[in-house]
Design a binder for these strands. Structure first.
Lengths: 243, 243
DNA sequence: ATTCACTGAGGTGTCGACACTTTGCGGTCG
DNA sequence: CGACCGCAAAGTGTCGACACCTCAGTGAAT
């Protein structure tokens, strides 16, 4: 459709996709298709509701339909595609209600992350987080939205990793991937980056104080601010989203 | 929905599998294979680590390898099977650490469920829950472990449904399915059923009081008691599970 | 003009085949 | 006796083919 190769974000979302899908190898027809189509969906080159029929994709990628079908099912697992029997797969459409739900769950899970971090993180771990925070700060000063966005993703991934809870990481990866479009949109809103930097600063202070209650509350607040930014943006009403 | 108490555990786990996989129809080769193999894993007819090669399964089911491969990937999505490139799929082995992680996350998510239930459930909803609780009580009195187990699953599903949060339901379904083996084991421990009935009774009382803090704490406690039962059982050490 | 059966073009689900990779086994050599 | 090499058996990834299903469009009947 829109064969414009995405500049830098593409590479990073590509890596994130591979990581989350657990297909680290990256070699293999299926992975190639998953990453390409997935990135096309995340970065908006496919609109919600678009048809993704296997025969056309097979033609585009020069493969048979078998790897395409596998790729589409992998994308369905991650919530990017809806597949029902004998019907053409379609790009998932998210309702405002679903978006709210995702943010609520994500906020709640990050409460757990922050409590765990307070419990188990060493000073060294916190120093690592602070390092990422520095890069957030710099990106914000430079007004580099994409850079800020991906560093922010890294910040949250680092926190999750620190808990040492693989199940928690998996669920957050899954949710995070689905919300990638939205999180990007949210951080693009005017004034959001500065706000976000300040919030992260406060969160790190709470970690340093080993104050679980404050850290959990701040984390949840940070996530939910993203939701509010989206709600204010009117993005939802500008799309063909069902109630 | 299920007027007859599960005569055979297989029937119910079959239905639960279909529901969680979003494959309600149940018609189709892939679904048949998913359900059969999935139930075999849940109910222990395959040991963790067993090979599940597609050609043998295709022979067993009298199909080609294509639907078998799709089924195996669906099972991988739910965490029952590990697939890596060019190697035979294997039944997932869970380490004790992973089990602990799953229970912790599940407990935390059910905190959210209980808070939501307190917020949004009508008296009519709570009456529905109490009805399930009655059946729990009866099954416990009758010493019907399987009946109790599946009614318990229904109780938790009902709570989740009440929140109206589809994302939350999805994550809990996913987690719940992976933990099915463990939850069953946990409830089979001597004295657990009676304990569980009493816990649920207290939880319902908290719902009636609209006391979110107590409800959340009780819910988490109920989940974590399941974990402790498993830890005491020594199940993990009797399996070839890595620590 | 509206409805509805029909149809054919396009797509999905499944199949059997084939090349490449892994694995288990036996023989060779230190 | 054990380590190493190589080969055959077994399994995976991908392909093209084909039967069936869906859907938009046609045209006839109301």
């Amino acid at each position: 459709m829109n064969p414009e190769p995405a500049a830098r974000p593409g590479d990073t979302s590509r890596a994130e996709l591979l990581r989350v899908l657990g297909r680290e190898h990256g070699a293999g027809l299926v992975d190639e298709i998953v990453v390409k189509v997935g990135a096309d969906i995340i970065e908006g080159r496919y609109e919600p509701g678009d048809d993704l029929n296997s025969v056309e994709l097979a033609r585009v990628f020069g493969t048979s339909r078998t790897p395409v079908r596998e790729a589409l099912q992998a994308l369905q697992r991650e919530g990017f595609v809806d597949i029902s029997a004998h019907r053409r797969p379609r790009v998932t459409t998210q309702s405002l209600a679903e978006v709210r739900d995702m943010y609520q769950v994500r906020a709640h899970l990050y409460r757990m992350v922050s409590r765990c971090v307070v419990d188990v993180a060493t000073d060294r771990d916190l120093a690592g987080l602070r390092l990422v925070q520095t890069r957030l700060h710099d990106a914000a000063e430079a007004g580099d939205v994409d850079g800020y966005f991906w560093t922010n993703v890294e910040f949250r991934n680092t926190e999750a990793r620190l808990t040492g809870n693989a199940t928690l990481c998996r669920l957050l990866d899954n949710l995070g991937l689905r919300m990638l479009r939205l999180r990007h949109l949210s951080l693009s809103m005017p004034g959001r980056m500065a706000e976000s930097v300040a919030d992260h600063e406060r969160l790190l202070a709470a970690y340093d104080d080993r104050d679980a209650d404050v850290a959990a509350a701040l984390t949840a607040s940070i996530v939910l601010r993203g939701l509010r930014a989206i709600e204010r943006s009117g993005w939802m009403t500008s799309r063909g989203t069902v109630t």
